[in-house]
Computed example of a mutant assay.
Amino acid sequence: MFDLIVLILAGFGAGALNTIAGGGTFLTLPALIFTGVPPVAANATSAVAVFPGYASGALGFLPEMRAFDRALLIRLTLVTLAGALLGSLLLLVSSDAAFSVVVPVLLLGATLVFLFGGPIRAWAAAKSRSVTPYGSAGLFAVSVYGGYFNGGLGIVLLALFSLWGMSNLHQMNGLKNGLSFALSGISVATFAVAGLVEWHQAIVMMIASTAGGYAGAPLARIIPMPVLRGLIAAIGFGMSAVFFARLF
């Protein structure tokens, strides 16, 4: 019963955080590992748990997606799917011991990306002239990361779009949600076929995260953004410290 409560609270909190600002992986992955799911399976199950949020987000940004050339969207989606598939396959061949070493580094990196997302995007925008707009190499690399470990993916994608020279934040968010949905879809399918998903935990967290996603909108109007960002950063740094400590 205690494990069930932990999963429900983590799923609900992740759904709310992803709706408001991102960072849901900081809750779902540690909660799954805490309740006894092996690290690699926990990462796969976490990806399944937050998948409904990407689906609803993609549907909500359909008007912005239609502003892009269809051929361009198809190419970007195919690149994303290829990178996500490679990243997911890399996770499948990772041992729990190896992934346990990588997890704190990835969590810490994702926390820093989240915390300094604004300056990162500003730096990326300043460098946009030296980067090919809508280039495949950068998107493929980001998609490999997203297929292997989903934390901080949204901020990384927005930074990449800034490097491409994009400036319309609504279109950037639309493209981010659409590509995140495609990326997560191929990851979830790969993990499911490989039998890596703990479905009982995943279903509980999917339901809780969906409820949390709906609750996120009114919470966003109540909680000051600096307070929320500080809370997410504290969770990220705290979880990173816990997983670093587990190595020794």
Rank of each mutant, 00 (worst) to 15 (best):
V37E: 11
A49Q: 05
P52D: 08
I120R: 06
G24I: 11
A234I: 02
T111E: 11
G83C: 00
M239V: 14
F161H: 01
A208V: 02
G212V: 05
V204F: 09
H200V: 14
L108Q: 10
S94P: 03
L115H: 15
A14M: 05
A215W: 05
R221I: 09
G109E: 14
R229N: 00
N150P: 08
A126N: 12
L32I: 03
T45F: 05
P63C: 04
M166V: 07
G57V: 05
P63L: 05
A137Q: 11
I203A: 10
R75F: 12
L92N: 05
A82G: 03
M166Y: 15
N43P: 05
L153C: 08
A10R: 00
V242P: 13
F61M: 03
E198S: 11
F114D: 00
F61P: 02
P224M: 02
T80I: 07
G22M: 00
L32S: 04
L89H: 12
F237N: 10
M1P: 15
H170G: 13
M239G: 12
F140A: 01
S180Q: 09
L163N: 01
L139T: 03
L89V: 13
A42W: 00
G151M: 09
M65I: 14
L72N: 02
M239N: 06
A245E: 13
I74M: 09
S100V: 14
A159F: 10
T25D: 15
G87C: 03
M206W: 03
L73V: 10
T210L: 09
P104E: 12
A122R: 13
P104D: 09
V227W: 15
H200L: 13
F149V: 01
A245D: 10
V144C: 03
Y214D: 11
A124W: 04
S187R: 05
G212F: 11
N177P: 09
L92A: 08
V131H: 08
M166G: 09
G152C: 05
G216K: 03
N173R: 04
S136P: 04
S94E: 06
L86Q: 09
Y148I: 03
S56F: 15
G57L: 11
S240N: 10
L115V: 14
F68S: 01
I33E: 08
P63A: 03
M65V: 07
L72Q: 06
A47Q: 07
Q171P: 09
F114Y: 08
A84S: 12
P63E: 12
A97F: 15
A182W: 10
V102K: 10
L169V: 15
V227M: 13
L247H: 10
A234T: 07
G138W: 08
F51Q: 04
F116A: 02
I5L: 13
G11S: 02
P30G: 07
Q201G: 14
F99G: 01
I207E: 13
L76M: 14
I74E: 15
G165D: 05
G152Q: 01
V204G: 07
L183T: 11
P133Q: 02
A211H: 06
A124N: 01
V93K: 13
N173I: 06
F99S: 00
P39V: 08
A245C: 14
F140T: 01
